[in-house]
Each structure stands twice: as C-alpha cells, then as structure tokens.
Design a protein around this nucleic acid. Structure first.
Lengths: 192, 192
DNA sequence: CTGCCCATGTAATCCGTTACATGATTAA
DNA sequence: TTAATCATGTAACGGATTACATGGGCAG
C-alpha cells in the first residue's frame, strides 16, 4: 500500500489536512503498521486531487497557518474500495533491535542490557497507547487492528522479560567473541 | 541497518556468496526481521570489497555457475562491531493485511474471510519454520531472536483465531458500508 | 518439457526520507 | 525564552525494488 492509498483511506474516515494525516500515522491508530512523512504525504495528496480522487478547500485561520482540508470524492471511494480488494503484499518488518540482538556475542554485555531495557520501554509505551485507543475505536476494523497490536506487544514484553536476562547471562558467561586475526578459516556452510 | 551492514553481519558468521545471503534473509533465520533483494545485495558486496571490509574469491564449479565467495576481513569485523554499537532505529512494520482489516467495513465479507484465512496460513507457516530453526540455533542471539519471532507469531495466531471470526461477524451484521454519493458531509475531527 | 534451482550482475525507475525554507501562537 | 504545535511545501539525495539479460542442470 503506497502513501497515496493510505491518504485516500484516511480521508475515507473524514476530511483531513496533510498535517492531520501525518499525525494519524505517528500517533494515531495506524502507528503500529504504517508510517509516512510529510515529504510523501503532501505530494500524494496533490496527486489524489489531480486524479479527482480527492478535493481540497483552503481554510484561512486566525492566529494559525492556513490549512488545506482534503475530502475524498465518490471516484476516490470507488478507487479505495478497489485497492482494498487487491491481494495484500506480505508484511514487512525491519528491526534493528533484533538484528543487533542476533549478534549479541559481538556486543558488550553492558550495552546489550541497555539496549534491551530501552527497547522494552518503547514497546511498553506503545502498548499503553494502543490500549488507550481501543476504548475509542469506532469501526470494527479499528478495534480488530488495535487488538492485534496489543496482543503482539504483550507477547513481546513477556518474551523480553523472560528471555532478555537469559540472553545477557549467556553473553556474560561466554565473554565477548574475540575479533579473529584474519579471514574466517573455513569456507561454505555459513549463511545457509 | 542498511544492506551493507547486513551483508557484513552475515559474512561474520562465515563465508558466503551473494546468492546465499539472499537465501539467508528469505528462508533463513533473518526472515522475520530483515529483507533484501539481489539488486541491493550484489552492489553492497562490491562496496564492501572496495572498502576492504570483505574479500572475494571466485570459485569455478563443474555443472554449476561460477560463484564468488565473500569473506569478512579484520577491518570488516571492526566495522561491524562498531555498527552494532549504534543506537537502533525504531522497528518499522508495514502490514497491508492490517491496513485492509482496518477498513473491513469497505470489503465484502467473503473477501475478508479469505483474506484472514490466507494470512493465518502464512503466519502458521512462518511459525513452523522458525520453530524448526530454533533447534539448530548456534549463537545465543540467534536462539533469542528466533524465540522472539516464535512468541510473536504464536500471539498473532491466537489473536486471529479469537478475533477474526468476531470481526467477520460484525461486518456481516452491519452490511457493507454504502459508497456515499458526495463528499463526506462533515469537516474536522477525521484522522485524529 | 516445463519449471525451478543455481548464480551473477546491470540499469532504470520509483519511492521515500531528509533537509531546507517559513512563520505565528502558546505552553512550560 | 525555549520548545513545541500548527501548517505547508520543495529539492536533493539515497536506497531499494523491478525488470532485464544469461544459461546450464535437474526433478517432476
């Protein structure tokens, strides 16, 4: 799902400005499975209007910058319904944390400990926010989606609390993997 | 973590070809938190060599295409250790499935049902594969990382089984949201 | 005999992030 | 007075996907 479709979808819930759409994905209920910046939202909104899938009204405000309120059009609703019918691409997850954790044996235990703690905090925060949102969920899909995130984050926390200390313990026991002096000795069978 | 660092990290586990690195991220133990294609791996490997972080040996094979086996260098190990010390960027998740599910009220219930079933199948498959891998985990970080994925996938399955049918039930009860004839009537309070 | 596995790479293109540019209001 | 919120946009850059190009071996 590209940013254009995302914007269209958000607009289907009601009129909004680019700024509000951005907030929807960084604080709102899309946070845990979608992200987009101004640099992609504003151009996407422009294209949506150009293609007749959305319309704009510029609203002057006193004491605040002028805002451009976008609304989805009938053509836009049809286009959205159509996009929603397509086969979804597989989920993409990019986790620096897991990447570093995989190579825990190359990281000082102190650092690893901080890493896990910070990560745990981040997850816990997200979880709290999702839980707060769930009460106000309007559409059934919104509640489903929030519940999904909550279930996943809970599982993460549980796992971190259980296995984080174990990992650190193992790393402490083994000591830091020494940086070998040359190229790795053997061939083959590496990444497999 | 860019592809360069990823390749370097995989090479730190042993020598490998570009093809093998690709497999490592689409079938191997990185699958659930990293992805990269040939188009980015091969150039990355070239840069790694150019910068002296890896070395290459071309190996001719009978009955198979010639392969280029890459090995991490000492300089590469230092660079990797350094990269691992940096602050990880927050996890990024992009889920078409959740996106569509959010707008379940715009999707025919039949389609929604298929969608959830297919998604469930995909998750279940991934889970099975991760569980199989865990037995062979070598580094402590690998086991930790696999366990993390397993915990998350299990939570997903559980949630899908519990809440999937409920969602479909709600959609069936409400009927498809009709495509309104004009622009949405109200302003403001949309995306929030 | 079709299609997948092995194996490498390049080129074009697209998409998105980041940085830049601007500026008033308000809460801490 | 410092930072954050509100609010819009462009330009440059970078990274990554996709398509293209090639080709033998092997299993169904």
């Amino acid at each position: 799902m590209d940013v254009k479709t995302f914007c269209l979808a958000v607009l289907s819930l009601g009129a909004a400005t680019g700024y509000e759409i951005k907030k929807a994905c960084e604080e709102g209920c899309f946070r845990h499975f979608y992200a987009a910046g101004f640099g992609s939202i504003y151009p996407a909104l422009a294209v949506l209007c150009r293609d007749g899938l959305a319309s704009v009204v510029t609203e002057a405000q006193e004491g605040r910058p002028t805002r451009k309120v976008y609304r989805i059009t009938q053509k836009g609703r049809l286009a959205l319904a159509d996009s929603l019918l397509g086969t979804p691409t597989p989920d993409r997850v990019r986790s620096d944390f897991l990447f570093i954790a995989f190579f825990a044996h190359l990281v000082p235990p102190r650092h690893l400990d901080t890493l896990i703690r910070d990560y745990r905090t981040r997850i816990a925060t997200q979880l709290t926010e999702l839980e707060a949102r769930r009460a106000e969920a309007r559409a059934p899909g919104e509640a489903f989606t929030l519940g999904y995130g909550i279930a996943v984050y809970r599982a993460m926390l549980e796992y971190l609390d259980q296995s984080g200390p174990i990992l650190i313990g193992e790393i402490l026991r083994q000591g830091l993997s020494p940086l070998r002096d040359g190229d790795p000795p053997v061939s083959g069978e590496a990444a497999q």
